[in-house]
Structures are given as structure tokens and as C-alpha cells.
């Protein structure tokens, strides 16, 4: 990716390869480039968390889950505006995510307009 160092970078963390490609494709269609990671561990060890302006993450993943990832980032004082996308999110999980600083909580299949608006808002904040 030729956008390293760009503070307006979006990162995607999802264990599902199809969903990663779909999200990357959607962002590209609206002129945004994004890095994709198959797991929270991969993202954390990449060092890209500090350059990420907006994080799109799945909640349920093998190993470190989306919520745990958010907690870890917060602990590292690396508060990234985060959009969660999940297939089975309940109200409790949603509250927990939003309280920890999530900017949006979307259920699959999600509204693409809502996602893009959230991403743009996060990047401009």
C-alpha cells in the first residue's frame, strides 16, 4: 500500500476473507484506501495501529476478539475511532462497544451508506 504515513488511513480487521475483500472494494469505490488484516494479532504486530485513523473490525474472531482489541488499544492510549460490524450483536455488546469509544455498531448485512458516512466522519474528526 502506497499510503503508509498517511494519517487518514483506514484499517480492516476481519477473519473472513470475503468480507475483507468486500470492505476494501467498497472503500475503494468511494476513493478510500484501506489495509486489511485477518486477525487482531496481525493488526497489533503490524505497527499500523498508530497510523490508523479509522478501524473497521469484526467482533467475533478466533483469538483476540474485536472488543478485546479495542480494550488493548485503549490500554496502549491508542484510541482509534472504531466501527464494529458483526453478525450477531446484541444490545449489551453494542452498549459495551459504544462505551469503550466505538463510533458505530453495524449488523451484517449492513447499510453501505451508513458505513461510509461513519468512516468519513471518523476520518474528519
Amino acid at each position: 500500500m502506497a499510503i503508509q504515513g498517511n494519517t487518514k488511513m483506514v484499517s480492516i480487521v476481519d477473519d473472513d476473507d470475503l468480507m475483507r475483500s468486500a470492505l476494501q472494494g467498497l472503500l475503494k469505490a468511494v476513493g478510500l484506501q484501506a489495509l486489511a488484516f485477518a486477525s487482531a494479532e496481525e493488526f497489533l504486530t503490524s505497527g499500523q495501529q498508530h497510523a490508523t485513523a479509522c478501524l473497521i473490525a469484526d467482533i467475533r474472531m478466533p483469538g483476540i476478539s474485536g472488543l478485546e482489541l479495542q480494550a488493548k488499544l485503549n490500554a496502549e492510549h491508542c484510541r482509534i475511532p472504531t466501527i464494529f460490524i458483526t453478525a450477531h450483536g446484541d444490545a449489551k455488546m453494542r452498549m459495551q462497544a459504544l462505551r469503550a469509544g466505538a463510533v458505530e455498531f453495524l449488523a451484517k448485512p449492513f447499510d453501505d451508506v451508513a458505513l461510509i458516512e461513519s468512516v468519513r466522519a471518523a476520518l474528519e474528526s
Binding site: L18, M19, S21, A22, G25, K28, A87, K108, P109, D112
Partner: peptide
Amino acid sequence: VNQPIAAAVTDANT
């Protein structure tokens, strides 16, 4: 089943 369907919806919108 939902996972690939969600991806399909996103790809269709794209």
C-alpha cells in the same frame, strides 16, 4: 451462511 451473504450485499452495492 450470513457471512458470505453480507459480503455479497456489500459487493453488490460496490
